[in-house]
């Protein structure tokens, strides 16, 4: 039971896909201009991740090793299509706001990374918990970035006006440079939280930061470092 809790909680801070593994940066920077967009993107990706992790874990003994990547992509694309159709039907405004980034979840490296690095060699239950944890971490990062950028750049909180009537907002925060400012600062915060728990900071996009590390021969050779 405690190991399941660990699988869940690691995605929140210690192995937060966005802030510690630096994956999925493209949608993170692009859609975190408003908190509600971050929430929508995070939940959509979590649903896809949950579905794909469970199915890939179920099929992990069936899928031949040599064609595993196309097989994973097909499964992920199936779930993305479902989420996209649901969103188009029930949340058309959110679908418009997310635009191209919703179908692009297919090639989101967080989802492929969890398939390759976790679901392909763990039980269904563990894979599902891992998916929920990673999805929660992704959503938390997106929502916090969205809240900060929306508040500073538009003076609103989840589209509700807070300071927008009496203070001119700092527009740069909802533009791409503001995304990078907030992203960098949040990575620093996550690193400092992780250091308190005795983990090293992410100081480069080196080999060990890769989500496919556990499956990769180069990563295996120095596995001790990763498990410290």
């Amino acid at each position: 039971m405690s190991s399941l809790r660990q699988e869940f909680s690691k995605g929140l801070i210690l192995e937060n896909p966005v802030l510690r593994l630096v994956l999925g940066t493209c949608p993170t920077l692009a859609i975190s201009t408003a908190a509600i967009n971050g929430m929508g993107m995070g939940v959509a990706a979590t649903l896809v991740l949950l579905g794909s992790n469970v199915v890939i874990s179920l099929l992990r003994k069936v899928i031949p090793d040599r064609v595993r990547i196309p097989a994973y992509i097909t499964i992920i694309a199936g779930f993305v299509s479902i989420v996209q159709m649901l969103m188009k039907a029930y949340l058309p405004t959110l679908d418009k706001a997310l635009g191209i980034y919703l179908p692009l979840i297919v090639v989101n490296c967080i989802i492929l990374g969890r398939a390759e690095g976790f679901a392909s060699k763990n039980s269904v239950l563990a894979s599902a918990v891992d998916a929920i944890g990673m999805g929660a971490g992704f959503t938390a990062a997106l929502v916090s970035m969205g809240i900060i950028r929306e508040f500073l750049g538009a003076g609103t909180f989840f589209s509700l006006p807070v300071t927008s009537q009496f203070i001119e907002p700092i527009k740069v925060m909802v533009l791409p440079p503001g995304g990078f400012f907030v992203f960098g600062i949040l990575i620093a915060v996550a690193n400092s939280l992780a250091r308190r728990k005795g983990r090293k900071p992410v100081d480069s996009l080196g080999c060990h930061g890769c989500a496919g590390c556990e499956a990769c021969p180069a990563g295996q050779s120095e596995e001790g470092k990763l498990n410290e």
Binding site: E168, P169, I170, K171, V172, M173, L175, P177
Partner: peptide, 10 residues
Amino acid sequence: IMLTVSFPEA
């Protein structure tokens, strides 16, 4: 530049 982009009128 940050101020130019953020507060173009001012």
